[in-house]
Design a protein around this nucleic acid. Structure first.
Lengths: 200, 200
DNA sequence: TTGACAAGTAAGCAGTGCATACATCAATCT
DNA sequence: AGATTGATGTATGCACTGCTTACTTGTCAA
């Protein structure tokens, strides 16, 4: 007997969302992530999750969507409409902070080949890219916002990965922040014209 | 019976290097990588590799060292001493090409937390960073080479990861190259003074 | 020659993803 | 009301994984 079921009803109620939130918690805690462990935590048989997710990668994809939305929230919250050159560095700092604070989730989101058929996932990733491009268009109105968005995202992503990997000594939290900020400043030009927020 | 041993000698001869090169080949081929599969390919019992590697992660670390050295070779070869701003973009292109050409190896090298005790691995990574810093010092003699090296590496790494992940449509090889080049150009300043090669 | 040691093997553990067959419940349609 | 049916969970088992322990085999040096 693999699980002692103390549940009164046969049906779980809302297994899918329970699995997802348990999965998030499991990634947060850094525990080894597996379908069986998840089922165990939900007090459900090892095969039950397959009623809600085609396979392991589908579950991972769903978790990745959650992560992308969380990341998006981290990036957007607390930012007013006014944008300056320093805001770009702030975004990078938040991005790296997310990766270091939730390494397992970050790796799940980016460290494997993802399911490109998953509409929700594509939407979440696209939203992130679009937001970045909008910020860039605000800050650098005379430059190619798409190219800058790609550069900014790539730079932040690379910083996050390399820090996660320990390629750069990441002793202190604030030290990392400072390094990210100065790295971004090294390649991103100063805000040329401090415009008012765009009206559109 | 898990393996039919047609080997004449009991001892394999040079199992360690055979395992390593078989591992590289396996990553290249995109086959699922496992210790047992490796042992199978070397026509050796599943426990034999443990004579040469403490555990799976030690083997992976050794493979990652090979990958880092290969990457270093890709980056350094064909580059003359003369350095211009475009050379920086070239390095990024080569970096991304490496990742796209050998995705499994690239993920092995960077996609997991690595063993920071492995001296050889640290040395390989440091060599890469130092090389980059030297190039930056050549191309931008008036700037902070360390910061630029970090920015350059992060940018290239981020581009590689995001392309691998399919975050940017990577239809054509040359299209990817062009995009990488333009992205780097978007944030890296033009070469201020086209100096002669440094003499030191 | 022999004894120590390195380098293999055999067998088995716990854990994994996944497939199949079966049990149970809840809602729907006569 | 009562039968049917589909969704949801269970039981069981397969092939595979990393890893450990105990054993065997060959090599080399004293």
């Amino acid at each position: 007997m693999v699980t002692t079921l103390e549940r009164s009803t046969y049906h779980h109620g809302d297994l899918r969302t329970v699995l997802l939130s348990a999965g998030v918690a499991m990634l947060e805690a850094g525990e080894p992530f597996s379908l069986r462990a998840l089922a165990r935590q939900a007090r459900v048989s090892p095969a039950a999750p397959y009623r809600h997710f085609a396979d392991r990668s589908a579950l991972e994809s769903a978790l990745a969507v959650q992560g992308l939305q969380d990341l998006m929230r981290d990036l957007t919250q607390g930012r007013s409409e006014a944008t300056s050159s320093a805001d770009v560095a702030d975004l990078a700092v938040r991005y790296v902070q997310f990766a270091l604070r939730r390494p397992a989730m970050f790796r799940l989101m980016f460290g494997r080949e993802c399911d490109h058929q998953d509409d929700e996932r594509i939407r979440a990733a696209t939203a992130l890219h679009d937001y970045l491009a909008a910020v860039m268009a605000d800050v650098f109105p005379d430059a190619d916002a798409q190219a800058l968005a790609m550069a900014g995202w790539s730079l932040a992503h690379g910083l996050a990965c390399l820090h996660l990997d320990g390629k750069f000594a990441s002793s202190d939290q604030s030290a990392v922040d400072e390094r990210v900020r100065s790295t971004v400043a090294a390649v991103f030009p100063r805000n040329p014209t401090n415009r008012t927020p765009r009206t559109s």
